[in-house]
Design a protein around this nucleic acid. Structure first.
Lengths: 206, 206
DNA sequence: GATAATTAATTAAACGTTTGTTTAATATTA
DNA sequence: TAATATTAAACAAACGTTTAATTAATTATC
């Protein structure tokens, strides 16, 4: 990927995250990236292919991290859950614009191939977490829980915070200038909430 | 509100939920409702005002229900949480298209006034739940928890299930024909997961 | 209660923009 | 010299919206 293509993609990410795919015009994109409107089609072929390139380019951003945690034998099962929580919060907070683009898109019933691509990005992570939960249950360290729904809770909690700054700040009683995703103290607060929640829910004895 | 306006709104809801605001054209809307394209502007003034009318028309769909639960003295604190969970699942599953429209819109940084309207719809419900949690904590029935984040978990868990059928089914290991939101057994399953989760997290003694 | 006057509802067509995309000419680099 | 990059301009199609004419419904008058 050339610098120019990356430059366009990175600028496109901001606009797509802010205004959605249909809400963003190629002229918007070109203006923001400081290039001629024809360059988008010259480099990517179409607006939709630019979007796909964006997803593909950023798709690798999680791969491997969860595997490392899961295969690290110095962690017991609940510690793995803890590390996964921190990993998710850290990664999604820093890559929140891309994450927002993914979730906006997967809510729609359009652009079938792109939806599949997004599932391919997100689902493997879920599988890894599921493995940890089931291992814990087999050993009797974890209570008998509904693993897929535990994942939905974990992911959904972070998403709820991440996807609407306005709603999040309202919930927290903060004013609208506050950016929770850039506040390390808030990341910690969320992390501790989720850990406390998962400990109480999963562990057979506290 | 006349029948004709309601008819247009109800058809618009489906399209907006499926394709988003920008992704839906007035010609789409008119075709789906079986009326002339000019009727939308005749009745509502503009596409944006139609959207606002839609939100306004459906906005009252939760009001009062949570209040009833909270003010019912025959429930103790954790039972109120249980009833709130069931109420949320039931209401959001049946009104899931409207709910999807709300959440698609609040993720964007466009249409400022509409965002405020959506916050005005959703936030009062959060306040009521917050009240229940804090009352439980004061009495020592509930553990010391992060009330706003508990709400985020509760709402976020249901949203995670609700906003993408594709991702939901992948998580549950179901095929894509399955519609979890129309399956009473699944509603029960989700309800029990959330109750178990909240009991473990909130109650000082199990 | 029939007829005329008035208002409301509905239509097809056109409006001016904006959209994504392409072209054909020019500039840059290899 | 040949390939690549960049540009301004043009393209057709789709967009939200308006118009002007017509039909339907309502109200007023006798």
């Amino acid at each position: 990927m050339t610098d120019k293509k990356l430059h366009i993609i990175n600028n496109a990410l901001e606009l797509f995250a802010e205004k959605g795919f249909e809400g963003t015009s190629i002229r918007d994109l070109a203006a923001k990236a400081g290039v001629n409107v024809a360059m988008v089609n010259y480099y990517f072929g179409s607006k939709e292919k630019l979007f796909e390139s964006l997803v593909e380019e950023r798709a690798t951003y999680t791969r491997g991290v969860l595997d490392e945690i899961v295969n690290n034998n110095s962690y017991n099962d609940i510690e793995k859950i803890d590390r996964i929580i921190d990993s998710y919060i850290n990664k999604w907070f820093t890559n929140r614009k891309f994450h927002r683009v993914l979730h906006r898109e997967i809510m729609l019933n359009q652009r079938e191939t792109l939806q599949q691509a997004i599932v391919d990005i997100l689902y493997p992570n879920s599988l890894i977490i599921k493995g940890v939960i089931e291992a814990g249950m087999r050993k009797g360290v974890f209570r008998k829980v509904d693993a897929p729904l535990v994942i939905a809770t974990l992911v959904g909690s972070i998403n709820q915070i991440l996807l609407s700054k306005r709603m999040c700040n309202k919930l927290l009683g903060k004013d609208q200038d506050y950016v929770p995703y850039e506040d390390a103290a808030f990341a910690k607060r969320l992390s501790e909430h989720l850990k406390q929640l998962m400990h109480a829910h999963l562990l057979t004895k506290s």
